[in-house]
């Protein structure tokens, strides 16, 4: 059934090379986007819980804006609108960035900042789930608020949310497919290109689907390993905590990444 993938293309490659190249862009986008999301998400998530009202309000604003605008719209805003509202020279310089980087960077920023808003909410939930006694004990020892967050609150909150971060890891790489709308030749875009070149629609998207599915399982297993590695000795957490999450993720995600729905 997948035999067509090994046939040569007009440019002398094989169709499977197109898919692999798309996979590379998908992984690069998801990987680097994840670190942006993680870093920004932790800062904003902490911001949601601090006493300082201005900082808390800013963090809240960030989450509401980035979480509530559809990813696709955000993608267009970064790609089409941003260069127009910047000063002309800077806007033109951005438009001059050669492909594929001209699409990659807006997509990276878009996915990173969008996912950061979601991670921020998880971080906030993790912090709020900690017993109040932890902060009190830290204060009683004379630890400043900064030291309390740095050594007591954040390390515990992050451990607590590893299972729910699994959804975000799966989410960001599935959302990479939206980048095809601004011209990045990632996995879904390549699948569509193969489908158009060979008319083997089922094969093209079937192969892409299997790759996405394999990635999901790898991400899930990887997060389960991390969860086990950072587990605090003497605290029992059964695997039951994670299992329902997978079911939830699969349900949430739908069968196909968002971009594939568009491609259809």
């Amino acid at each position: 059934m997948f035999a067509v993938l090994f046939e040569p293309t007009a440019d002398g490659q094989r169709y499977i090379d197109w898919l692999l190249s798309g996979l590379g862009w998908t992984l690069a986008l998801a990987f680097f986007g994840w670190w942006i999301a993680f870093a920004v998400g932790i800062v904003v998530g902490i911001g949601r819980t601090v006493q300082n009202r201005a900082f808390a309000a800013l963090a809240r604003l960030y989450v509401e804006v980035f979480r509530n605008i559809p990813v696709l719209v955000q993608m267009f805003l970064w790609y089409f609108v941003l260069p127009e509202i910047l000063p002309t020279t800077l806007g033109n310089a951005i438009k001059q960035i050669p492909p594929p980087w001209g699409s990659f960077f807006p997509a990276l920023i878009c996915l990173g900042l969008y996912t950061a808003a979601r991670i921020a909410e998880q971080v906030r939930a993790g912090i709020e789930a900690l017993p109040k006694g932890q902060t009190e004990a830290a204060s009683a020892l004379g630890l400043s608020p900064y030291l309390t967050y740095r050594h007591i609150i954040v390390p515990q909150a992050l451990r607590l949310i590893v299972p729910s971060l699994t959804s975000e890891v799966m989410g960001i790489y599935k959302n990479t497919s939206v980048a095809l709308t601004i011209g990045l030749m990632e996995l879904t875009a390549q699948a569509r290109q193969i489908s158009e070149a060979t008319f083997q629609t089922f094969t093209a998207f079937g192969a892409a689907t299997l790759i996405y599915l394999a990635l999901a399982l790898i991400a899930y297993q990887g997060m389960a390993l991390i969860d086990r590695a950072v587990r605090i000795p003497g605290t029992a957490r059964t695997d039951d905590d994670i299992a329902p999450n997978l079911a939830e993720d699969i349900q949430q995600a739908g069968a196909l990444p968002a971009g594939m729905e568009i491609a259809k």
């Binding site: 004990a137 007591i152 605290t235």
Partner: peptide
């Protein structure tokens, strides 16, 4: 504290 509040 009553509830120890050690850092787990």
């Amino acid at each position: 504290f009553q509830s120890f509040n050690l850092f787990p």
